[in-house]
Write a protein that binds this DNA or RNA. Structure first.
Lengths: 127, 127
DNA sequence: CAGTATCCGACCGGATACTG
DNA sequence: CAGTATCCGGTCGGATACTG
């Protein structure tokens, strides 16, 4: 393996753009759907505060990872979608995902159990 | 491009292990040197507090990314090196690095200038 | 040399209420 | 519906002094 390209500066930048508790799951949904309305995105992400989701989306838009489209209607309709820049990050994210599944399978499982539990708790609190 | 492998849980895990202001540069040095003593590592990373560097190294060791070796001498000699698990992350990190250089070149340049400035400031304060 | 012990301020995620 | 305004508590990076 050759690490001539690995200078850590770009890595800093990329990780900064990815820093935010809910960004991985936001990216996951935007990668797998053409576009999605704010409320729909909010509903399918368990336990995130509306404000926080908006903060993250605002940052990601500022970083050019996603595109925000607003229809001038009332009530407003806002759609979010992945940008070309964001989609180009896909292979690198998949590589991290595969690494984690191969080398940190336990932690991944713990996290899944944890999220599942939180999700169940939320379902209870909603009923 | 196929994103079947991209489930975001592993991404969460990987990003958690990478979260920490100085981890990218720590990884950079450990990728490019067989092993390195604590003080040497501390000296080549500008502007990091000793405690913070130790915190990060402790976390990375707990995550299995690096290996800490202690010689029972006085004064103590402690060496850090990348683990197999850590090295396996290399390709994914390089992918992120390349993405940033291609799609976020401006931000990378800003960061380099910024670090350069901080480094110069530190050099001044040391003289 | 390689840590530990304190203390601090800034930032971040989050809960809640309000608005165009 | 989508977003703003406030306030809060915990965590994180950091400065400094001390120790085996």
């Amino acid at each position: 393996m050759n690490y001539k390209q690995f200078r850590h500066c770009g890595l800093d930048v990329a990780l900064t753009m990815l820093s935010g508790k809910w960004k991985p799951i936001i990216l996951y949904h935007l990668f797998h759907q053409e576009q999605i309305r704010f409320t729909d995105l909010w509903r399918i992400i368990p336990k995130v505060a509306k404000k926080v989701l908006l903060d993250h989306l605002k940052q990601m838009e500022a970083h050019g990872l996603i595109i925000r489209t607003e229809k001038n209607t009332f009530p407003p309709e806002v759609y979010y979608q992945i940008s070309e820049k964001g989609r180009a990050m896909g292979p690198a994210l998949t590589a991290l995902e595969l690494w984690a599944n191969e080398y940190a399978a336990d932690e991944v499982k713990d996290l899944q159990d944890d999220k599942k539990k939180k999700y169940l708790i939320r379902k209870e609190s909603l009923s």
